[in-house]
């Protein structure tokens, strides 16, 4: 049976993780490679690295980092943040990223999804959507959630699938940072509207939140701070979910 995926997300700035971390045995808590290895040892199913300070000067640093990560870890990983052209995606994929995640640039230029999918395959393209409930409608936001667009989330998700994305990473801005649970309503709605996997992001705070998420058809859950701060060790989370009869990789 296909397993539900638990995906820690690491925010990267100038080649370093920016949010605090609280792992024992890591001398240098800001080193993304060490942190990634720790997550792999704990049983993370995939990893996402998000460059939150994407700029031309920082690209070379990011590419070196991706090469290093690819050399060290033996599970799939996604790299995102500021990917605005086929060339930018190609550099990261050639450096060893299994998947790239596109967000604002794909809203601006939807063909970007198609170009990357045509060149490297749909499995390489994760389309990230930041969404927020505005007047009872889930709308798409860009530029790190700062700018609203006129796209409705369900329609954009369907378009993304048609363009060739292999997965959707859906972040609910209403839930992000609240630790009050995932936005199961809109994530389920998107899951039903498309036939590609959808990763829920934003709001994870407890083990029960993952249980509620995985009782639905949603295939993966992403979180950052609860893993970084050691609030929820992945082995403990996985054991809990296995005992709750959720299909999880041991």
């Amino acid at each position: 049976m296909l397993k539900k995926r638990i995906i820690p997300c690491l925010d990267i700035k100038n080649g370093r993780t920016v949010k605090g971390v609280n792992f024992v045995d890591i001398q240098d808590a800001g080193d993304p490679v060490e942190l990634a290895k720790q997550y792999v040892a704990q049983g993370a199913d995939e990893l996402v690295f998000l460059d939150i300070n994407a700029s031309v000067e920082n690209r070379a640093t990011l590419i070196d980092l991706v090469k290093e990560i690819a050399g060290e870890i033996n599970i799939p990983f996604t790299v995102g943040g500021g990917i605005n052209s086929l060339e930018a995606a190609a550099k990261l994929i050639k450096a060893g990223a299994d998947k790239v995640s596109v967000n604002s640039s794909a809203v601006k230029n939807p063909e970007l999804i198609k170009e990357i999918a045509d060149k490297f395959g749909s499995q390489c393209v994760v389309a990230a959507i930041d969404t927020k409930l505005i007047n009872d409608k889930w709308m798409v936001f860009v530029q790190g959630g700062r700018t609203i667009t006129d796209l409705e989330t369900i329609n954009w998700a369907k378009q993304i699938e048609k363009l060739g994305a292999g997965e959707i990473l859906l972040t609910s801005m209403n839930n992000d940072g609240t630790k009050s649970g995932f936005a199961i309503d809109i994530t389920s709605e998107v899951t039903k509207a498309v036939n590609i996997p959808v990763i829920a992001s934003g709001g994870a705070g407890t083990k029960e939140h993952f249980k509620q998420l995985f009782k639905t058809d949603i295939s993966a859950g992403l979180a950052a701070s609860i893993f970084h701060y050691g609030e929820m060790p992945i082995p403990e989370l996985k054991n809990y979910l296995i005992n709750e009869n959720i299909s999880i990789r041991k």
Binding site: M1, L2, K3, R5, D45, S122, Q123, G166, E167, N195, I196, P197, S219, A220, R249, K250
Partner: peptide, 26 residues
């Protein structure tokens, strides 16, 4: 969902390639 994407378990393992691998390993 298509593609089949993620971790899934193996069964009916045969031969030297799977020595030391258990059915249900993902």
């Amino acid at each position: 969902n298509v593609p089949h994407m993620g971790w899934n378990d193996l069964s009916d393992l045969k031969g030297p390639l799977f020595e030391g691998i258990q059915a249900n390993d993902d």
